[in-house]
Write a protein that binds this DNA or RNA. Sequence first.
DNA 1: CCTAAGATGCATTATCCATACACCTTATAG
DNA 2: CTATAAGGTGTATGGATAATGCATCTTAGG
Lengths: 148, 148
Amino acid sequence: MHLIPMRLTTFTDFSLRMLIHIALKPQGRATIAEVAQAYGISENHLMKVAHLLGQAGYVTTLRGRGGGLVLARPATDITVGEVVRRIEPDLALVPCFAKGDCVILPACRLKHALHAAREAFLAVLDATTLADIAVPDAELRGLLGIAA
Amino acid sequence: MHLIPMRLTTFTDFSLRMLIHIALKPQGRATIAEVAQAYGISENHLMKVAHLLGQAGYVTTLRGRGGGLVLARPATDITVGEVVRRIEPDLALVPCFAKGDCVILPACRLKHALHAAREAFLAVLDATTLADIAVPDAELRGLLGIAA
DNA sequence: CCTAAGATGCATTATCCATACACCTTATAG
DNA sequence: CTATAAGGTGTATGGATAATGCATCTTAGG
């Protein structure tokens, strides 16, 4: 038996917000400072998010003047499930005995149910693409202060 | 947009373990001290768990000598999903704007996807009963030190 | 070569949960 | 009727983890 920490951290939250923001920009380019301001969140933290998104191959990061972030793959090709799996640290398949503190592990049936439930959770997110959640309508752009 | 803290706390973990333990006992009765010892977990914490399980109507708590905990409903009637929904504090439907810190809430499409994913997660657990995960085989009882 | 942008590491702070402790209540045995 | 075994309750402490802040470096245009 074990505990599946399935909390989505703000790190993952910010990752998704950032991708949405970039996808909504007419030219498809945004800077960290711009996203941080739009959502009123920490620029420092966002920088780390941006870096990881770059390393994971979701965005291309451009340094220097006129730089910023650009989607590295089409929005229709990036699923929410994929991003969550990649960004959320504890969603990775961790052996239940990571802490080795459960006695009935070998015979634990709850483990299977929890695993199946988690897969069902991710399956729904796998069916949702960035294009689905970043529809460039006027309302969304308005709320984010993005000119059409 | 928001963040769904879907981590299962040890509180929920203990709740399920405790229910399993009671269900596995030949006479269907267990004490807090006994369960705490079997799993090597905090008796203090377990006591709060036991109390909540009692309030939620899953067990009947009996004070005094010869007391302990007894299932208040048949194991085939208690689903894991039901317990998780009841015990996990943040799984309750919290408005996304609980913190009021997200700008695009009104137009947020990610919200819907996350909500659907959570429902899929719980649906799997709804299909699992306590009887399914507390099968009284020799292995499980052996690991818990429960005599048949 | 100045400035705008991201990269990186470290330190600090905040949050939340698990745990411990202290004391109370209930009930049965003898 | 008292001792003891059980659960009930509230407060306080500690620890893990994550969010944040700060300092410094690197890269690229103009």
